[in-house]
Simulated assay, not measured.
Amino acid sequence: MTVTPAPGWFRIVALVLLVGGAIGCFACVQQFRLGAEAMGPADDYQRALYAALPSWYNAVYAVATGTALLGAIALLARSALASPLFAISLAAVVVQFGWLFATTDIIAHRGALTVVPFPLVIAAIAAGSLWLAWHARARGWIG
């Protein structure tokens, strides 16, 4: 496939996704390092919730953030690898937050308005990133 010039907004969006991916990876590393205290002083509920996470949970978080960062790099490099990387990231986000909401009492304990908006934004960004990669591939902006 021949790669054609991409519009300027494409590079800007890819750079924003790169910065967002780096922030996500930093947050992931902080959670690995600090546990429940990663987002600031944790209460007893947050500590208990974090302690109860299955061993695979952090791995899924790392996959979600790592593939998002790699997908953004692939977009900037105009590589078709962006699509599968963003697809993996979206799947990992769905598994991560789906498990959290389906198997814990976090919504009952914290309230839906407190805990649901952030994961919805993350899922929307992941889905939008995947759509952008598909769109860019269809337009020939990535090879």
Rank of each mutant, 00 (worst) to 15 (best):
G40W: 09
I88Y: 04
V116F: 09
T4W: 04
P54R: 07
L100S: 00
T104K: 02
D105A: 10
L130R: 03
A133P: 05
A126S: 11
P7N: 07
W56P: 02
A14G: 00
A136C: 02
L132T: 05
Q46N: 12
M39Q: 14
Y50W: 13
F86Q: 02
V16E: 07
I73Y: 04
G8T: 15
I142C: 01
C28S: 13
L85R: 01
I142L: 01
L70Q: 03
L85I: 10
A136L: 00
L81P: 04
R137V: 03
A77Q: 13
G140K: 05
G111V: 09
S129W: 09
G143Q: 09
G98K: 05
A38C: 04
A124T: 07
L34K: 12
L81C: 07
A22S: 13
L76C: 05
A127T: 09
P119R: 02
V19C: 08
V63K: 02
Q96M: 13
P84G: 05
M39W: 15
I107W: 06
Y61D: 07
A64C: 07
L15D: 09
V63R: 12
Y45A: 09
I73P: 02
M39C: 08
M39P: 06
T2S: 10
P84E: 08
W134T: 12
T4I: 08
R78L: 13
T114I: 12
P41F: 00
W99D: 05
V29M: 10
L18S: 04
A64I: 04
A87W: 03
A59F: 12
L17W: 01
A52Q: 15
R47W: 13
V95P: 03
A38S: 14
A112P: 06
I23H: 06
V95A: 11
I125K: 01
I88L: 14
A62C: 04
V3D: 01
Q30V: 15
R137K: 10
W99C: 00
C25G: 11
G140C: 09
V95Q: 03
A92W: 05
A133K: 01
T65N: 13
A52I: 07
I12T: 10
P41G: 06
A42K: 00
N58L: 06
W9P: 00
V16N: 10
A112N: 03
T103Y: 14
M39N: 15
A87M: 08
I106T: 04
C25P: 01
V94D: 02
F97Y: 14
V63G: 01
A14P: 02
L120H: 06
V115L: 12
H135M: 11
L132F: 04
W141I: 06
Y50K: 14
T4H: 15
E37Q: 11
C28N: 14
E37V: 00
T104H: 03
C25S: 10
L85E: 03
A14Y: 00
L113G: 15
N58I: 02
W134Q: 08
T4N: 15
L100I: 12
F32S: 11
Q46M: 14
N58Y: 12
P5G: 13
L85K: 02
Y57H: 13
C28F: 11
V13N: 07
G21C: 03
L70P: 12
G8R: 14
F118V: 13
S89I: 04
V115A: 05
W141L: 03
L132R: 10
P117L: 08
